[in-house]
Write a protein that binds this DNA or RNA. Sequence first.
DNA 1: AAATAAATTTAGACAAATCTAAAAATATTT
DNA 2: AAATATTTTTAGATTTGTCTAAATTTATTT
Lengths: 219, 219
Amino acid sequence: MNFSISEENHIKWIYHLQQKKGLVNTNSLAAEMQTKAASVTDMLKKLKAKKLLQYEKYKGFKLTEMGKKTALNVIRKHRLWEYFLSVKLGFEWEKVHAIAEELEHISSDELIQRLDDFLGNPSFDPHGDPIPDSFGKIPAIKQYNVLQLPLNKKAVVSSVSNQSPEMLEMLKHHKIGIGSTLQSLKHFAFDGSIEIKVLKNATCILSEQVAKNIFVYYD
Amino acid sequence: MNFSISEENHIKWIYHLQQKKGLVNTNSLAAEMQTKAASVTDMLKKLKAKKLLQYEKYKGFKLTEMGKKTALNVIRKHRLWEYFLSVKLGFEWEKVHAIAEELEHISSDELIQRLDDFLGNPSFDPHGDPIPDSFGKIPAIKQYNVLQLPLNKKAVVSSVSNQSPEMLEMLKHHKIGIGSTLQSLKHFAFDGSIEIKVLKNATCILSEQVAKNIFVYYD
DNA sequence: AAATAAATTTAGACAAATCTAAAAATATTT
DNA sequence: AAATATTTTTAGATTTGTCTAAATTTATTT
Ligand SMILES: [Mn+2]
Ligand SMILES: [Mn+2]
Ligand SMILES: [Mn+2]
Ligand SMILES: [Mn+2]
């Protein structure tokens, strides 16, 4: 089934708030989406009619299985596009969200499947959030700070928690980016710095201050 | 200024029909866009109010300079996305148009600039249509059939006029695609076939039947 | 120059998505 | 348990984009 942009946005936000707060109510959804409670009520009725939502008036609401599946598909598209914008087009991380907010509503399933493959089936978006697969399954992969990484274990950079220009300059210099594979080679007790090998590139030293912002995963 | 999806689609079609037929009228625009004449009239008034169109009722209409610029920007986005879908994601050519019809309405200018650079600033979309630059200028580059290409001149593949699976199989085998650089080395009078070198790849022979479908450009 | 045909516009309706203001239901306080 | 506050829903309006059917204008024939 195909849903409107507004329907998709509502479903997605209900999902996010359900995850974060356990339950959602009309006012908090309206606040989050920068709309009015009356508009939310209108949409709730529509989503109920489309069987995306269990809803009894005045009693609250929550997504049906189909609603969840729909939400996860929008989230999947959002995060894949964010990864594309960041890794392929070189966008700064704070700019990708607004653009992905539009791109997530492009409807072609084949587009998303091909994009996913083109990107190398990434597990996390540039903010470190997991990317659901085409079944809506969220990868059960843990992220680690690079400082916690076992020595010599190959791991993939999934996110960086500081995206200042200074940090970007440094990462660029070392040819480290989201999706880079690296190995931790040695920890130095003297200053907490670590030596890492960036696969297909050189070995380098990262200060503790830098390293604590870099997160990786491995299987 | 930002325009709605419907406004952008109308502007784009008026531009196309203006180019092809010299002038556009209400009925032909309605037919082309699969809508009704009355709906077109409504939109014409809106576009006039936004100064995209010169329009006097019953007298006809045509785009203003600003209207043309807007149309060319939508066309630029459409064709860059088509190139992306075809060359980067490997879509068959007949599928890219429908998806680009949605993607062309994503509003970020920076996105398009970065996409253009990421794609290597292509001059033609996969159908051989020229891609306007960010000023709306259409490249004054001529395309040639590969059979007409001067010997040893390096040229870039811009389009292929037959996109059957059999043709695709053959091109894939020779590692020829949109954006490939090649040189024509020799013409054989016996059967009209040509020997070409695909840069960074091997030399190969193309039958006249294949070659007549391949178009290239050079500067 | 009428008469007729074709193209275009208007009038009025409808669906989607939103809003404000008022009413109704539920929750919290006294 | 009343009174009050909060939350949610309804009623009715607005904007955008579309439609059908009728009216109007322009073009083409007789
Ligand atoms: Mn969105
Ligand atoms: Mn994100
Ligand atoms: Mn379109
Ligand atoms: Mn095209």
